[in-house]
Structures are given as structure tokens and as C-alpha cells.
Nucleic acid binder design. Structure first.
Lengths: 149, 149
DNA sequence: ATGATTGCAAAGGCTTTGCAAGGCG
DNA sequence: CGCCTTGCAAAGCCTTTGCAATCAT
């Protein structure tokens, strides 16, 4: 999915996502809206469990359904998946206007966003290696102050 | 485990690893040696399955054992784990003299090593975010030419 | 009304654990 | 010989699948 620039203003993320759903003939169900509302208004990334808990306290639902909806959103490019090294996938709303990398604490999984501009050569290096496309999103691991002894 | 600089010459990786094992009172078993020989002489990263297949064709062994040995090697800092996004952990021998990042094709999982010198600001940026230590190893995802339509 | 979506139960796939047998030093 | 290591079987966990019931348009 190619997103329009103008659609990514903070408050429009939810509406943009709903539009994408409609364009793909996907119905605007209560659960989809709840999940998207949560993701577009919170800083992630979140585990499936996180998303399930948040959603479930508002409306009874099933873990399986969360898995399915998130998979669809990822497929549509509305959600980005991150692997932080503990075997749990994490997800966050992906806004093309605010691409960023993650600085991740290996121990406590604390996540700090880092501007993509910090690594200006990524694209160039990738091209040189024969890559046609690189994602402006990756995880850099380390230990945050409180986890470093 | 802090590694000595002089120990990381290509042909010494195996001996270095064996020394580390001894220093930790871990026995030099046939399987441990086979796995380390494979890892120190091949370019990774490899899945547990990869390692198992390679080892098993030389000596009958059990998948469980491979998991256990690799976990120990990772704990010792001799092996580095990578998550490439397909749910399978991958491992490669980690030599402090040759830290590098991975450029990974999201589709075919092809891996190209990238010199850490290409991203000189990583450390600085991490420090500014309150991180005491960052690993000079991370994965950058993209699509290689053959997988890009 | 009708095709998409959800819940529930079960199956899958990778990984870990328990325990007895075997191996290294 | 004594403790570490391995094999085997079973359990754990997260995730996916099948199918019938329910919902959005």
C-alpha cells in the first residue's frame, strides 16, 4: 500500500487506515476499529498479548482474532512488525511520514525511536550490495543504563 | 566472555573457542567440536536445522542436543543470534575482530555482511539515548534484486 | 441476503525440560 | 570414578487452521 503524504497527520492515522480497509473491501468491524484506535494512539511496539489485553478489556474477543487482524494489517502495510529477540513479535502502526529505527534494550526490551536521518548511507550501501529496496526500519540492540549492572 | 584480540585470527577461532570451553569447565565433546568446527569455518548465519543437518551427517545426534550446545555457546559469547523475521533463530560464530551488520533479504533470507564502519554514529546516538552499551551487530532488511519482481 | 469475520477447539512447529544412560577428564 | 553431557519422550508456547455461528453492508 502506498500512502498519501497528506493522510499521515497524527490525528488522521485512524481514518487513513479505515479508508485503506474499505479500499480493500475489508469490513469496518468493532474489533478492527478498536485495534486500530489503540495502535494509532499509542507508542509501540506491542506484542499480540498487549493488543489482546487492551482490546479485551473493552470488548470480549479472542486471541485468534487478534492474530488474524494484525496479520491483515501487516499485509496492508499499516502495521510494522519488530523482532526484539525474545521470540515474541511486536507491532506498531506504521506511518510513512515518520519512519524510524528502534534502539532496543536486550534486557528490558525498552524501545527508543531513532530518526532515520541518523543513518543516511543505508540506502546507498544496500544498493551497492545489489539490493533494490531497503526498509527504513531496523532494530539496534544494546543495554540501557538501568540494565547495565 | 572477553576475547583476546590475538585469538581471533581466522584459523585460530576453533582453538580459541575450545579454550573458552575449558576455562568454563565444559567438556570438549565430539558434538561440541563438530558444531564449532562447522561454525568457525562457514559463513552464516545458520538455523538450528542447518547446524543439525551438517552435524548429523558426520555423527548421529539429537536435535535437542544441538539446541543445548548452541544455547551454551551463545551464553559464552562465542555465537551470535540473528532473527531474520521468519520465526527461526539463526546463529553464526562471533569473532570480536570482525563485527559486522547483516543486510537481509526479507524474501529469500539472503544475508550480506556490512562493515560496522559504515555506520560510525551508532555508538554516539545510543549514548545520547542513555544506552551504556550497544552491539555492533544488527540486521537491515530489504529486498534483493532477484526477489524484487 | 450474502459473503466476510469471529469464536472455539484442535493441530502445528519450534523450543525446552525431565530423567536415565552414556561419555569425558 | 564422578560429574557433565546426551538421547529420548513429553511438555510448553506461540501461532495457525478448520468449521460453524455471527456480523457488516
Amino acid at each position: 500500500v502506498e500512502k498519501d503524504k497528506e493522510a499521515c497527520q497524527p490525528k488522521d492515522n485512524l481514518n487513513f487506515a479505515l479508508r485503506i480497509l474499505r479500499e480493500h473491501n475489508l469490513k469496518i468491524t468493532v474489533l478492527r476499529k478498536l485495534i486500530l484506535t489503540f495502535l494509532t494512539s499509542s507508542h509501540g511496539p506491542f506484542t499480540i498479548e498487549n493488543i489482546y489485553e487492551n482490546t479485551h478489556k473493552i470488548k470480549a474477543c479472542n486471541l485468534t482474532t487478534i492474530y488474524r487482524i494484525i496479520a491483515q494489517l501487516e499485509e496492508l502495510g499499516l502495521v510494522r512488525r519488530s523482532e526484539l529477540g525474545d521470540g515474541l513479535s511486536r507491532y506498531e502502526y506504521q506511518c510513512v511520514d515518520h519512519p524510524h529505527h528502534h534502539l532496543v534494550c536486550r534486557s528490558c526490551k525498552k524501545v527508543v525511536p531513532i530518526e532515520t536521518s541518523v543513518f543516511p548511507d543505508v540506502e546507498k550501501v544496500a544498493k551497492k550490495q545489489g539490493f533494490k529496496k531497503v526498509y527504513p526500519y531496523f532494530e539496534i540492540f544494546g543495554l540501557c543504563r538501568s540494565c547495565f549492572d
